[in-house]
């Protein structure tokens, strides 16, 4: 399993209801079902992934989350997960609003644009950063709204969102001393556990 997913599973209670936004082939939900007996549902738009979900017995709704989550009731899930997708959405702030409405708590992960290597790339090379987390060219990236840990903290403050946990991992998806010391500088991936 992807390391960020492995880290966040500790915040998901056994037997809870989990909504995974952009659930891919459903393997994370399948894992949670197996290990924590959760009742899950995924949102996905890629037909190949949707068929893999069906085959694996994972509930999947074909829905573009850029169009909102209006069909989901308030508090209808215990946890709503959005992994590595926030920066690729048209209106990230609106999806955060929708997530904290639908879920009693939410987990978000995203690449931290203020990671020192990214800063260095801009500062010295004058080029858009590329890295294993951001492998794209500026013209073909699906990422529309890059943000930093500082930015997301500010968004949570503006929206009065409670940050239950915040952690960062380095490029090995490990917690490092440096990243804990200055997350916005040394953290590659940000992981937030938030609620209303």
């Amino acid at each position: 399993m992807r390391a960020d997913l492995s880290l966040i599973q500790d915040w998901i209670s056994p037997g809870s209801r989990v909504l995974d936004l952009g659930c891919g082939d459903g393997s994370f939900l399948a894992h949670l079902k197996r290990t924590k007996n959760i009742r899950g549902c995924g949102l996905e738009i890629d037909p190949a992934n949707i068929h893999l979900c069906l085959q694996a017995g994972i509930n999947v709704i074909e829905q573009d989350m850029d169009k909102g989550l209006a069909n989901f009731e308030t508090d209808s899930f215990d946890t709503v997960v959005l992994a590595q997708t926030l920066q690729a959405l048209h209106k990230p702030d609106e999806i955060v609003d929708a997530m904290i409405r639908v879920g009693k708590n939410c987990i978000l992960t995203f690449p931290n644009f203020a990671y020192w290597r990214h800063r260095l790339s801009l500062l010295t090379g004058g080029r858009m950063p590329k890295s294993p987390q951001l492998p794209y060219e500026w013209y073909n990236t699906p990422n529309l709204h890059h943000c930093t840990i500082g930015d997301f903290d500010a968004l949570c403050a503006t929206k009065k969102i409670k940050v239950l946990h915040r952690t960062v991992v380095d490029d090995q998806h490990l917690h490092s001393t440096l990243a804990n010391f200055n997350p916005n500088f040394f953290g590659v991936n940000a992981i937030y556990h938030i609620s209303r």
């Binding site: 009742r39 949707i50 979900c53 509930n59 999947v60 709704i61 074909e62 009731e73």
Partner: peptide
């Protein structure tokens, strides 16, 4: 069909939806 799906979600039933 989405109305059906919405009702099923509201009833906390297990549902998949394809368009």
């Amino acid at each position: 069909s989405k109305e059906i799906v919405e009702s099923l979600l509201k009833a906390k039933r297990e549902v998949s939806y394809l368009e």
